[in-house]
C-alpha cells in the first residue's frame, strides 16, 4: 500500500563530480513509520544520496521534498532544524567531549536562550538547560549507556560510540532519522541491541528512517522496503522478500561472470 503523502521524497536526483556520475536519476519516497533500506555494492552512490538529502551535496538536477516543502536549496543546518537527523559511516562524534555533552549538542537547536542569558545563566537559561538535560538523560537510559555518561567518547569502544551517535541524533527530536551503516563493525550482540533500538524507535516514536547497511540479515529483518543501487542508479525497489529474488540485484551482488567480460 502506497502512502498518499510521503514524509520525505527525492525526485530524479542527479549528481556528478567533475564529470563522474555519482547519482544518475534516483527517486525515492519515505512514508511515515517506515524503515527504508538502501543497499548496494560499495561506491554505488548510497551515501551520496544521503548527502543530498541532508544538504552536504547540491545535486545538479532533481528535488528533495521534506514535509511538503522543497528543501533542495536549503543549507544543511536548516534541514537539520526542520527535523532531518543523521549518523555517519565513520562516527562523527566529538571525541574530546563526554558522552553527556555529545548528546547535549543535539539539543542545542532546541534551546532558545540568548547569548546574554547564557552568559548570566540565571533564571530561564539555567532552567532551560536543566529541562534539556532531563531529555538527554532519558535518551541515555533508552540506549542503556548510563555507566559511561561521563566518559570521554574517545575512550569508548566502537560499538558504544555508535550508540552515542544515535543518541545525539535522537536528541534533536527528529522527524526523520538517516542512519549510514549504523551496525558496521559491531559484534553480533551489539547489532542485536542496535536493531532493538531501531525497531523501538519505529514502534514507539513512529520515527521514519532511512538506513544504509551491509549486513543483509539485519536489512531483511528491519526494513519495510528496500532500494537497491548500483553505479548511481536505482536498479530495484520493493519489500525485502521480493528484492532477494530480483535478478538485477543478484547480478549486481554476485556479478555477471556468466555473461559479461572478465569479472574483476
Amino acid at each position: 500500500m502506497r502512502p498518499v503523502e510521503p514524509v520525505l521524497s527525492v525526485d530524479d536526483l542527479r549528481l556528478s563530480f567533475q564529470g563522474i556520475q555519482a547519482i544518475a536519476g534516483v527517486s525515492l519516497t519515505l512514508a511515515s513509520r517506515e524503515i527504508l533500506g538502501i543497499i548496494g555494492p560499495n561506491g554505488a552512490g548510497k551515501t551520496s544520496v544521503l548527502n543530498c538529502i541532508n544538504g552536504f551535496y547540491r545535486p545538479q538536477r532533481g528535488r528533495v521534498v521534506f514535509g511538503g516543502r522543497d528543501i533542495t536549496r536549503l543549507p544543511p543546518h536548516r534541514r537539520a532544524a526542520l527535523g532531518i537527523a543523521r549518523t555517519f559511516q565513520n562516527i562523527a562524534l566529538y571525541p574530546g567531549m563526554s558522552v553527556l555533552n555529545n548528546i547535549m549538542t543535539g539539543r542545542v537547536i532546541r534551546m532558545r536562550s540568548g547569548v546574554l542569558a547564557c552568559g548570566v545563566y540565571a533564571g530561564h537559561a539555567s532552567r532551560e538547560h536543566v529541562a534539556h538535560r532531563q531529555v538527554v538523560e532519558e535518551i541515555i537510559d533508552f540506549l542503556e549507556i548510563e555507566d559511561v555518561r561521563r566518559h570521554l567518547v574517545a575512550d569508548l569502544p566502537y560499538g558504544i560510540q555508535k550508540k552515542v551517535e544515535l543518541g545525539r541524533a535522537l536528541a534533536m527530536d527528529p522527524q526523520v532519522l538517516i542512519l549510514d551503516e549504523p551496525m558496521a563493525g559491531m559484534s553480533a550482540d551489539e547489532k542485536a541491541d542496535m536493531a532493538r533500538y531501531i525497531l523501538e524507535l519505529k514502534d514507539v516514536r513512529s520515527l521514519p528512517m532511512i538506513l544504509i547497511e551491509h549486513d543483509m540479515g539485519v536489512v531483511m529483518d528491519l526494513c519495510d522496503r528496500l532500494i537497491v543501487m548500483d553505479y548511481g542508479k536505482k536498479i530495484a525497489e520493493g519489500p525485502p522478500g521480493a528484492i532477494q529474488r530480483h535478478p538485477e540485484v543478484i547480478r549486481a551482488y554476485i556479478g555477471e561472470a556468466a555473461e559479461g567480460p572478465a569479472a574483476h
Binding site: 541532508n54 544538504g55 552536504f56 543549507p75 544543511p76 543546518h77 536548516r78 537539520a80 532544524a81 537527523a85 543523521r86 555517519f88 562523527a92 562524534l93 566529538y94 571525541p95 574530546g96 567531549m97 555533552n101 547535549m104 549538542t105 543535539g106 539539543r107 542545542v108 537547536i109 534551546m111 536562550s113 547569548v115 547564557c118 552568559g119 545563566y121 537559561a125 538547560h129 545525539r168 534533536m172
Partner: peptide, 23 residues
C-alpha cells in the same frame, strides 16, 4: 557550559557534524 559553549565546541571539533545538528 551553556548551549552557546556546546555549539562553539561542536563547530570547533567537527564542523560538518555541527551542521547536521542544525548549527
Amino acid at each position: 557550559r551553556s548551549r552557546i559553549g556546546l555549539a562553539f565546541m561542536a563547530v570547533r571539533d567537527r564542523d560538518y557534524a555541527a551542521q547536521v545538528l542544525g548549527l
